[in-house]
């Protein structure tokens, strides 16, 4: 299953090799022309003589950690890669380096803590990864400074039609994009699997510069906080509520004509959809939007609870409905659609 393979793959920002390889293999028989660039973006090019140049984008990278220092006791200190809440790190198993050396992020036993310590967040700079090495030298036989680290989370399905795993942001988007690329359309279609989104929307801008699209759709895994303790008006998205369309976030404002068309298609075809209810955060759409002389964009997201943590939760139906909605939109472009 592609989603399982992709979420369990090793791919923090700047080290997306495994994800790239899986996607290329998956799409081998559907895509003949691949374009690559200096940052590592992977662009599937499905050329056609006429019609608008359409760019779809999903990012391959995930949040993670990077080994910054090995101390004399053989413990690994680390930097964060992308936005991770320090509070999710304690008491988690991880993999260090592409050889996946197992490690754990421990913490002082509760017995040894003063009562006031327990109310305080342990900053990531005070945490470390234990790989079972007894000394600096022993640790350096297995890992090196600069090795990336990911959460050692297995993909699984649970509950009613839900899946849990790491990196649904944005491997779920990669699945959607891969499925769409398996079909043929009568206009030039560019599927960009981008790098370095989590550290500042880095890959999408250069990919868009190379592609020069007439319009673009960004497929994202997005925040979902429809849980107890939240007021409904504070929800960003609802799990199972269908693909979430973004009107605006800190990086871009969605193209109104594209949003209208998506809504029309969803309603006519009984596909559930929702609007993202928060405007915080930004995604690759922001960079594509201001590429060259400007590109109309819209972001469509799959809601993911507990995003950027070792285990996030999504609805498989939301992913399927996102695939369906994007395919419908692309078919409608075939019939002539103007932004």
């Amino acid at each position: 299953m592609l989603l399982r393979r992709l979420t369990e793959a090793f791919g923090p920002s700047g080290f997306e090799h495994e994800v790239r390889a899986i996607l290329q293999e998956e799409l081998e028989q559907y895509v003949s022309v691949w374009q690559r660039d200096a940052l590592g973006n992977l662009i599937a090019c499905k050329e056609a003589a006429n019609g608008p140049r359409v760019m779809l984008a999903a990012h391959m990278d995930e949040v993670g950690l990077m080994v910054s220092h090995v101390d004399d006791a053989g413990l690994l200190h680390f930097h964060k890669v992308g936005g991770i809440d320090d509070r999710v790190l304690v008491s988690k198993p991880v993999f260090v380096g592409k050889e996946r050396v197992p490690g754990v992020i421990g913490a002082k036993a509760i017995h040894l803590q003063k009562p006031e310590e327990r109310t305080q967040v342990i900053p990531h700079r005070s945490l470390f990864i234990d790989i079972g090495a007894k000394s600096k030298d022993e640790a350096l036989e297995k890992v090196k400074i600069g090795d990336y680290v990911v959460f050692a989370t297995k993909y699984d399905e649970f509950g009613q039609g839900l899946a849990k795993g790491k990196a649904f942001d944005d491997r779920a988007g990669c699945v959607v994009l891969a499925e769409v690329l398996k079909e043929e359309f009568n206009f030039p279609l560019y599927g960009a699997f981008t790098v370095q989104e989590e550290i500042g929307l880095r890959g999408a801008g250069v990919a868009a510069y190379a592609i020069e699209p007439d319009m673009a759709i960004v497929i994202e895994g997005t925040t979902c906080n429809d849980v107890s303790g939240m007021d409904e008006h504070e929800y960003s998205t609802v799990l199972g509520g269908g693909p979430a369309i973004t009107f605006m976030d800190t990086a871009s404002i969605g193209n109104r004509a594209m949003i209208r068309e998506l809504v029309r298609l969803a309603e006519e075809n009984n596909i559930p959809y929702q609007f993202k209810g928060t405007v915080t955060g930004g995604n690759d759409a922001g960079r594509i939007n201001v590429s060259r002389a400007g590109v109309p964009v819209v972001a469509i997201s799959i809601p993911c609870r507990y995003i950027h943590s070792p285990v996030s939760v999504m609805s498989l139906a939301d992913m399927e409905n996102t695939i369906a909605l994007i395919k419908l939109f692309l078919r409608s472009i075939e019939g002539g659609f103007r932004v």
Partner: peptide, 11 residues
Amino acid sequence: GLRGARVAAYG
């Protein structure tokens, strides 16, 4: 975020 001017100047 000065978005319009950026793309207009490019064009």
